[in-house]
Structures are given as structure tokens and as C-alpha cells.
Design a protein around this nucleic acid. Sequence first.
DNA 1: GGCCGTTTATGACAGATGTCACCGATGCGT
DNA 2: ACGCATCGGTGACATCTGTCATAAACGGCC
Lengths: 201, 201
Amino acid sequence: MIRVLLADDEHLIRGAMAALLALEDDLTVSAQAATGAETLSMARALHPDVAIIDLQLPDMDGVRVAEVLHRELPTCRTMIVTSHGLPGHLRRALAAGVRGFLPKTAAAEVLATVIRTVAAGGRYVDPQLAAEAISAGDSPLTTRETDVLTLAATGAPIDEIARRASLSPGTVRNYLSAAAGKLGAANRHEAARRAREQGWI
Amino acid sequence: MIRVLLADDEHLIRGAMAALLALEDDLTVSAQAATGAETLSMARALHPDVAIIDLQLPDMDGVRVAEVLHRELPTCRTMIVTSHGLPGHLRRALAAGVRGFLPKTAAAEVLATVIRTVAAGGRYVDPQLAAEAISAGDSPLTTRETDVLTLAATGAPIDEIARRASLSPGTVRNYLSAAAGKLGAANRHEAARRAREQGWI
DNA sequence: GGCCGTTTATGACAGATGTCACCGATGCGT
DNA sequence: ACGCATCGGTGACATCTGTCATAAACGGCC
């Protein structure tokens, strides 16, 4: 029997997925969590075979949860389920030791199959998403460019970005100009949008 | 027996919700759709009692689907399920004749209850969301201000917005300035973000 | 040691943007 | 008929933003 931990902040979806998995004889949902912290404490207590983690959790990123899980409980395989299948997320997830990556647009039937694959030590990545991730390539932005662009994404004026990043306004403008150039955007706002679409910020 | 049509572009979620509803004796999922067009044609063919429609569908807005359904098949009650429970969406949905509005964060147990309530001619709105919608009030933006701000939300420069809206650049700036003023934003990008958070664009 | 990329910064310039005053046209309610 | 909000526009001004040249400090790599 494969023991599964389900982590998703959307109760309705979590409950529905639990109902879906209950139909399988060899799977059992032994715990459900709504936040990253909850996921970690439950996993530590129950040692599930597979943790299915939503990418968007209220307190922390699903990939970071997987990272900690991978370090603390190497026997617990992790997989990510997400609404927004962005190339950058997949890259980060694989780097964090995630064994399965499934967009919520995937067919309902594959979920159980992937859980079994992952539990057996295999890997599974949605084929279409994998293709996109490969063709999209890696983020061309440096660490600081990413930081600054992330702050810029809220729509804040340069002075505020500078204050929040503890940089001079001039430096902020330089980074944003560089980022916009790399992303082929006419201004920082379009740059932020493009970076978001790729999952780079 | 209440016959339900499930519309959600996320296959996995749709299947999971179907599994959840299959546990109820008095409910049956008689059709599933992934797009707005599919939803309409299936509803026309099968005349379900309740249509559960996701707000985000690839081809058209869930509320617009509900609107058409309400006009063409008055006997089919509609309810909206959504990941992002924004006040503005709730307002639009209720204006379109939607009888139930449920964020996906709602408890899994309430779904069946709400379906029964709606099927019986009642209404149900998530209490927390209702409170937010009331406190947030209506959009202060005029039609054109909303149009222009929507175009501005992509991060495009003013000239492009002007071209796409068939307006002079000066007029666009006036509208955006007015919108930013009304929303208490320092610039159009922050204004766009705030309007999005309220579900106004 | 020298080269290269990254981080941080400054100064200068052109162009984009936000703001305001003001204008006319349209349409709606009373 | 009048007022009022909305729509569309122009012009002027100050400020914000994007771009570029330039440079010092730091770390990694050959």
C-alpha cells in the first residue's frame, strides 16, 4: 500500500483529489496539509511514501517544501502538481529533487499512474511541459536582476524599488534596463510580465 | 437525482471533482466540459439541472458562459467555482444570474450541499467572499478607463495602447491618470495591479 | 597575474509618462 | 431645457524612466 500525503491550500481540490485517489486499491491518502509548514510537520510524523505538493502554498513555495523534505526524509518521494505549468518552475523542481511534475491540466487517470511510478523510484514529467522547458532555456537574468525585476513586478516606482533593495535608484535603473534588454522588452513592466510567463521571477 | 455538468479546463481537477460527487447518492455527473463552447453545446444537448463552471476557461469567461446558459436554458441553474475569489468576479457573476459562488478554498464537504441548495432554487455565496465584495464596493472606473487600463496591464507603452484602443496618446494618458488617481496608485502599472486584485479588469 | 562576469555606483541625455487646464460632443436623467 | 457624467482631444510642464559611458570592487577561472 502506497501512503500518500496531499498538500494543497485549496480544500475543495484537495478533498476532490483525495476522493479520486480513494478509488485506487493500492493507494491511501494518509494525511492532508494546507500549508508548507503543515506539510513538513505531517511528513516528519507520518513518513509517507509520496508527497503530492501544490506549487502555490500560502506560506512557502512548493518546491522549497520538496527541497526540505528531500533533505530530511530521503525515503519520501515528492511530486509537484500545479495550475500554471511554467518552464522555470519545472527546472527549479527537478533541481530540488522532485520526482514527478504534473500540471493540473493533465488527465485525471495519469495521477495514480504517476504516483506509482514515483513511489517505485521512477520519474515522470508532463511531456508537453518538458518540451517547453527545453525550448525555453534557462533564465538569462543574473541574481540581482531577478531580485530587482521581482520588486518591479508590483508596479512600484524606481525609488521604492531602490529603497526595498537597498540600492541607489541609478543602479536599479541599470539592472532593469539590462533585464529588459535581455528579455526583449520595451520597458521593465513588459519585462516583468515576460519573466513571469517563463516562471523566472 | 440531480444531474450535474462539470466545466473546468483542468482535467485533473475536473476528474477529481467528479470522483468527489460520485460519492453522493443523489448527484450524478452527467457531462464534463473543458471549454466554454463545449459547456454550452453539452448543456443544450443534455439539459442538466446544475452547471458547475470554473471561472477561468480557455476560450471564454465562466461568467459569460453562465449568462448564455441562463438565457437559453432557464431551468439549468449555474454556479461558479474559482481559484481566485475576487470581489469583482462575484459581482459580475451574480449580475449574470449565477446562483452559487464558491472559491476552491472552500471545504470539500460544502460542494454537494451547495449543489443541492442551488438545484432546489436557492442561492449560496461563500460568506467570507461576500463580506469582501461588500466592503470593497464597486469599481470606480468608467468603461473606457477600464478598457484602457486593461490594455495597459500587459506592460505596453502608451503609443501601443493608443493604437490598440484607437485613441490619441494624449487621451490614453488622461484616462490612465484618472484611473491611477481613483485607485490611489502612483502610476498606471500599480493601478493595473490593484484593479486586477479587485477583479475590476 | 590577467581576463571576465557580477555588483554597485554616478552623470548625462532623450524620450516616455503623469498631471493639469481646457475644450467640444454626446447622452442621460429630471 | 438644463445640468452632469462620460468620451475624446490638445497643449504645456515637471518628473520619471530607459539608455549609455564609465568606473571601482570583488570573485572565479585559466
